[in-house]
């Protein structure tokens, strides 16, 4: 990690000024749980030469009620999100996903903004944010813009952030009335585990036990976490049943292969992603008050 300059932005304006000055050579440091190991590991040519510490910017931390949704500061830690009463009540899916990130120590340091901007294909909070219809507010000295989560993620570890931009806020849609959510993470062990796959589901119960609306997102099944709109269309308007869960699982597996191709891991992931969706649907439907 030698030869890396360190600077600190005391507020958003300072941070933006520093980023504008150093551009692609600079990386924002929030919780450091992704950046610091990357600095240790990456080849010198791929390293940022400047680390801009934004961890102390209080304005970027915390959860606020915005009426129609929640505004989550990017510096809010996973531990804080998992325990936040507003998030637990209005967007329980996000709290659930945050509670499953890494380990106790990683959740205490790591931030949701860091998890989002690192843009790992298996990031735990991203499928939840996608299924919550999250919007990312970006700021730069040139002004601000807002992108839906799906447009923000470009490729593995690559986002739509311009070199002078900062993720300044995350707007999270609230669970609709009659809604329920479910999140299933599969890892190789019970803590400090990178998701082998994860599935996030939001369902809204309509009249006559039918699914009025479905949102389905998954991690580690495509180059970036994505929504599966065809699976959502299959679910919407249908009656929940084990057979429907099976159909939806098979559809998700097909969509996964369409997105990623047949890979070495496909013989495992194909049946398992279907099973994980089945469980997430069951969990979400139960929480929406639906009969199994």
């Amino acid at each position: 990690m030698r030869g890396i300059a360190y600077c600190r932005g005391g507020n958003v304006e300072e941070a933006l000024e520093l980023k504008a000055r150093y551009g692609r050579d600079a990386a924002f440091l929030a919780g450091g749980t992704d950046l610091v190991p990357a600095l240790r590991r990456r080849a010198p040519g791929q390293l940022p030469s400047v680390v801009c510490d934004i961890a102390g910017i209080g304005a970027l931390r915390g959860v606020a009620d915005e009426g129609g949704g929640l505004l989550v500061g990017p510096l809010t830690t996973h531990a804080a999100i998992a325990a936040d009463p507003l998030v637990l009540r209005r967007a329980p899916l996000l709290a659930q996903a945050a509670s499953l990130v890494g380990s106790c120590q990683v959740r205490a340091m790591g931030t949701i903004g860091g998890n989002v901007c690192n843009a790992s294909p298996c990031a735990d909070t991203l499928p939840a944010l996608l299924a919550c219809d999250a919007l990312f507010a970006l700021r730069s000295p040139r002004g601000g813009r807002t992108l839906p989560a799906g447009d923000f993620l470009r490729a593995p570890y690559e986002t739509a952030l311009a070199p002078d931009e900062l993720l300044a806020g995350i707007r999270v849609g609230c669970l609709p009335p009659g809604g329920g959510s479910g999140f299933v993470k599969l890892g190789r062990r019970s803590a400090c585990s990178i998701s082998r796959m994860s599935v996030a589901v939001v369902l809204r119960r309509g009249e006559g036990g039918r699914i009025a609306e479905a949102r389905v997102a998954a991690g580690a099944v495509a180059p970036v976490p994505v929504r599966f709109v065809r699976v959502e269309a299959l679910l919407a308007g249908s009656e929940m049943s084990p057979a429907l869960r099976g159909e939806a699982g098979a559809a998700l597996a097909r969509e996964m292969i369409a997105a990623s191709g047949v890979r070495w891991s496909t013989p495992y992931k194909e049946p398992v992603v279907a099973a994980l969706l089945g469980r997430a649907l069951e969990e979400a439907w139960g929480r929406a008050g639906g009969a199994p």
């Binding site: 599969l186 190789r188 082998r196 070495w264 891991s265 013989p267 495992y268 049946p271 398992v272």
Partner: peptide, 14 residues
Amino acid sequence: ASLERVLLGRALDE
């Protein structure tokens, strides 16, 4: 006895 070995009976290692 990894996820893959237990489910599929064989390792899936690239």
